[in-house]
Design a binder for these strands. Sequence first.
RNA 1: UUGGAAGGGCGGAGGAUCGCUUUCGUCCCGCGCAAGCGGGGCGGAGGAGGAAAGUCCGAACACCAAAGGGCGCGAUGCCGCGUAACCCGGCCUUAGGCCGGGAUACAUGCGGGGGGUGAUGCCGUGAGGCAUCCCGACGGAAAGUGCCACAGAAAAUAAACCGCCCACGCCUCGAAAGAAGCGCGGGCAAGGGUGAAAAGGUGGGGUAAGAGCCCACCGCUCCAAGCGCGAGCGCGGAGGCACGGAAAACCCCAUCGGGUGCAAGGCCAAAUAGGGGACCACGGAGCGGCCCGCUCCAGGUUCCGCAAUGCGGAACGGGUUCCGGGUACUGGCUGCUGAGACAAAUGAUUCUCUCCGUCCGUAAGGGCGCAGACAAAAUUCGGCUUACAGCCCUUCCAAAAUC
RNA 2: CGGAGCGUAGCGUAGCUUGGUAGCGCGUCUGGUUUGGGACCAGAAGGUCGUGGGUUCAAAUCCCACCGCUCCGA
Length: 122
Amino acid sequence: MAAETPQRLRFGRAARIKLGRDFAATRREGERLVLGCLIANWRRLPNGSPSRLGVITARTIGGAVVRNRARRLLRETYRAHQHDLAQPVDLVLVARPSIAGKGLAEVEKDFLTTLRKARLLK
RNA sequence: UUGGAAGGGCGGAGGAUCGCUUUCGUCCCGCGCAAGCGGGGCGGAGGAGGAAAGUCCGAACACCAAAGGGCGCGAUGCCGCGUAACCCGGCCUUAGGCCGGGAUACAUGCGGGGGGUGAUGCCGUGAGGCAUCCCGACGGAAAGUGCCACAGAAAAUAAACCGCCCACGCCUCGAAAGAAGCGCGGGCAAGGGUGAAAAGGUGGGGUAAGAGCCCACCGCUCCAAGCGCGAGCGCGGAGGCACGGAAAACCCCAUCGGGUGCAAGGCCAAAUAGGGGACCACGGAGCGGCCCGCUCCAGGUUCCGCAAUGCGGAACGGGUUCCGGGUACUGGCUGCUGAGACAAAUGAUUCUCUCCGUCCGUAAGGGCGCAGACAAAAUUCGGCUUACAGCCCUUCCAAAAUC
RNA sequence: CGGAGCGUAGCGUAGCUUGGUAGCGCGUCUGGUUUGGGACCAGAAGGUCGUGGGUUCAAAUCCCACCGCUCCGA
């Protein structure tokens, strides 16, 4: 499969959740799982539609530097594994205070463990 | 050389791959008659800080009635100099530069004056004085109101508890002189004691006892030669000495400040929704400079609910070069420089070099530590304050070593 | 981005205006009461007044600068 269509790992503006009502709907109607340094909310979408990601970094986890860092790590993790999802979802990741000081590998480990528990991985 | 203090500066460099974002060019796809709109590919260029932070001051800019006057409120408050945007004038070779002047708020920087007497040292018998360092929001306490707890007799028009002294009376002792006690009248503020502060201080004279009552010195107040741009300093002289502290209590005086802030403010399209409750009111709203008049039928306030998108302000700016025209200034198919997001870009992985710390090693070298601290633009700019791994420079101090 | 407010015993608060003693309630501890517990009665302990400077004889209070927290604004 990789030989004919090598999947690009893109993450443009269309792949993000931007509206407040989409965040609220996902967190209200979707499923939820807390693990490690993050909280995952997701809402399954019909096959064929694109997946989207939203990241929430509240003020309680730290200053602007810590919050920017957390958001970028979570986005980078999602970008690297966006094609491993079993089906399209709206995914909202909430960073927890323990994410401060962690590297990409640790965040990736928590992310994959969460997806495996949620049975969203292929 | 090491350590410390103060001040100033820097806050890794060069690549690769994958992403994000702004912008330019080009190509493709969809819709559309077209203009264009939407999406995507490729290529080029750009993409956090010294504090971007705190939001403590101001300025630009925008709107509010013109931003002017009054009231209120707030801020500031010793002197001199420097620094910007800004304004004005003159000259030139006219792009622009040079010179001169004006004006400043928040400030800030430098220097000075005065103060505190905090620390240290020196001088003096002493009261005190001088020097160095440090601190400092530094107009007015005889404009007024109020405050100074407790203690103490008395806390701001001084006062008299224990005391000291004098005269008189009574009584006791005594041969007498006189002494002690009590009472009454008067003088005093030296000593004790209280306090943060007791109404100049030290030493002497003087006195019944005392007192700036008198004298010397110290301090203070006033005048003042002279010096300094000035705040002020002050040779010398006069005054027995008044005027406690606090205005970071109210307040008074002078100066300055209109208010709100890019969520300011502007534009386009569509929808919510012809929603509900309560109250007010019989007329209300719009057109209009006002009245008449005309049009509409509901109007106003408040609460709840729903909705809250796009463009743009906003970087196309700013700076500078060049070319024009002008007094300031202003214009441009010009070159260079170039963050511009909006659920919010500046990230991930990795290579080389160098810095620092640490560990291993005799050494060469190697391993580890996210280049390792603080902290990320959100209209722009100036200042202040605060945080900070490590490195560099200057000055000072201390210790050790050498000469 | 802009604006407003609050930090006092373990908890919740008063005192700040007009500067001199930090008070109250709950809780804690001790004793009494009771067969025992609760309730009640009596007593006691417990305070860097967020931090650091300044003004003052004297600061929780006045002034300044920081730190932390909360709320409001399309």
